[in-house]
Amino acid sequence: MSMVMQSVPPAEAAPSVRQRAPLFRLHRASVSIWCLTLVGIGLIAVSIPAVSAGVSFWFYLFQWIALASALNLMAGMTGYVPFGFAAFFGIGAYAAAVLNQFHHAPTWAALVGATAAGALLAVLFAPTLRLRGVFFSVVSLSLAIVLRSVIVLLPEDVAGGSSGITITGRHDPILLYYLMVAVSMGAVAIATAISVTPHGLRLKAIGDDLDAAQIIGVNAKGLRLAMWVLSGTIAAVCGAIEGLYSSAIDPAAAFNILISTKAIIYAALGGLGTVMGPVVGAVIMTITDELIWALSHC
């Protein structure tokens, strides 16, 4: 047994003060570098419309950064992989479209409505958090399919039926692009904030050993629910902005399971449970996607 036994100085001599300083300094330094990087990305993002002919590529790049980061809040930080993540994207898109097209709500009201719808859906689906592993994943996927079927079954003047909704009002694509940049930066900022506070440690602890985390008083249920609501709400906002941007919403596209799987793959490629991972993964994969698309069409 390679046990290190050392004579320890009396407690009053607290070497903790000596140890704490470098640890925190390093921590602070890396956090500030990361925040500066974020500001840099934000500045580049803001200047894109001035230098680029179209914002479409950039719009979807930031959408995937936001979605992968949002998914990571749940899958990476709590270990619950929601296959039905697309349900949030879909409910957001539908809420915005219904409010804007059928009830003539202005853009901001449509977005607020979509945010509320996302949060509400997350609370509604919260009982599924009792399940673990594949059970949770499959039930969450089933709920997404159920939700899509319900929307198709609703009368056409309520939710557009199986053919979906076409938004006839004009929405400035540049404004929507800026909104998407803001959402993605917000998602990354939330992930950063969580990972530098003890909440990040607690989430990791829950992932390592749920029982042991609870026994030291960690409110695992509450933390998980908070991440679930955050994750779902961000996805709903993404769906709403994308819906207004593309101005055509249909059940198959809005609830496409590819939204779930792509977000999972992107986040996992960069590194689940890290702040930077989903960003890196989304950037690499969106660019790869674009390149393959360009190559196969030239």
Binding site: V138, V139, S142, L143, I145, V146, S149, V150, V152, L153
Partner: peptide, 13 residues
């Protein structure tokens, strides 16, 4: 038909 798909998943839930 469309309710048929729904039912299977509702039963699961």
């Amino acid at each position: 038909q469309s309710a048929g798909v729904l039912a299977g998943f509702l039963i699961l839930v």
